[in-house]
Design a protein around this nucleic acid. Structure first.
Lengths: 213, 213
DNA sequence: CCGCATCCCATGTGATACTG
DNA sequence: CAGTATCACATGGGATGCGG
């Protein structure tokens, strides 16, 4: 009997045996955004010890959750189809955990990949479908994201391009998404700084992305 | 900074900080079925050391996931509203993990609460709505469950009462739910033993409860 | 520099025993 | 029955090293 075996024949149990170890679901979270190199994963999880990252990648690979893909000179890790089916799990966890985030603590960061997943969690396709297509450039700390909403479709990338609204913000952005902070107050209090574009587009942004309380 | 702090301001991260410890989500799983006493939780998680169970209950209580409720002479633990909102997470995990359960290993058990959650995961309300109301009595190992399906509603209890079909089975029942085993073959191979009632009701059962592959 | 492997220590976990 | 105490051990964290 393996140390991680809970001794039950049950789906939940099996799932936590596979991805219940520390850091595992955060690695999955980042890989849901796209294939990543070892160093990119390490950068997105600044506090993970390198031996743990290496160990998790091996375990998740052995379990069929992700794949190690040698790609012209470099190696990338990507989710298998089985691993990609964790998306509902990760989004559900994110939606639940968002309710308990409180205010950002000292030293807490937002990474591009975690922000991308948060946006996917908060995205309301049925609301977006009623609104005109819009592109946003969001600078969250050191990360720059381009968010394109077109009907019920969402695309978040790290490349830049033309946008309707550009704004800079920090961890407080998630308080805007939770509805705790109104767009107007977010601008007034400096939580969000509009760089380019009409500031009332931030209302549209807040309508489009909303973490239910 | 707490040892369990991942240092990120992100919903997924917060969630695994709260319920990512070993055993925590299994405790939540059982409490999703109903309030439980300490001894009942211990019985449903046979391999959990008592000190770990005690520690988890304290942590989850401090986090607002569950509550310790003194009830006439005894103490029960029950989920808070916040904790109950973990149901989508647990069901999503169960649905995902079910795909990787394989065949039951030596010593793996099914508890009444884990089976109840598995049934909730597998329940297809839209299919059930088209079928006549049906009550099943399922004996899974030592556990006896009464499963009542009425339109799109599901009720699983441990009390007995009149049923249309009574059957006895073991861990292999989940292979029936996954569609890996057809109802006819489940009976023929002895995975399911029909005790009372028309055996073709097992087809209806398999239609009503299905874990997608 | 990237992709890890090694070392050492702190912490968490597990088994068992024990107590109100 | 509902936990607490104790101790051995496994795992995680952080620093460092090292080969390609």
């Amino acid at each position: 009997m393996a140390p991680r075996d809970y001794g039950q024949y049950c789906g939940v149990t099996r799932a936590v045996e596979l991805v219940g170890e520390r850091w595992a679901l955060l690695i999955v979270r980042d890989l849901l955004v796209g294939p990543r190199r070892y160093g990119e994963l390490a950068a997105g999880l600044p506090r993970i010890p390198s031996n743990i990252l290496a160990a998790r990648l091996k375990e998740l690979q052995a379990e069929g959750v992700l794949r190690r893909v040698p790609r012209s000179r470099v190696v990338v890790y990507e989710l298998t189809p089985f691993g990609r089916e964790l998306e509902p799990v990760v989004l559900a966890l994110g939606a639940w955990g968002a309710k308990a985030m409180g205010v950002p603590r000292e030293g807490q960061i937002i990474t591009p990949d975690s922000m991308t997943v948060s946006l996917r969690t908060a995205f309301r396709p049925q609301v977006a479908a009623e609104l005109p297509a819009t592109a946003y450039a969001a600078r969250v700390g050191p990360a720059e994201l381009r968010i394109r909403v077109d009907g019920p479709a969402l695309d978040v990338t790290r490349e830049d391009g033309p946008v309707d609204l550009a704004f800079a913000t920090g961890p407080g952005i998630l308080r805007l998404l939770s509805g705790e902070l109104a767009p107007g107050r977010a601008i007034a209090t400096g939580v969000v700084e509009v760089l380019r574009g009409p500031r009332d587009l931030l209302d549209r942004f807040a309508d489009t992305f909303h973490l239910a309380a």
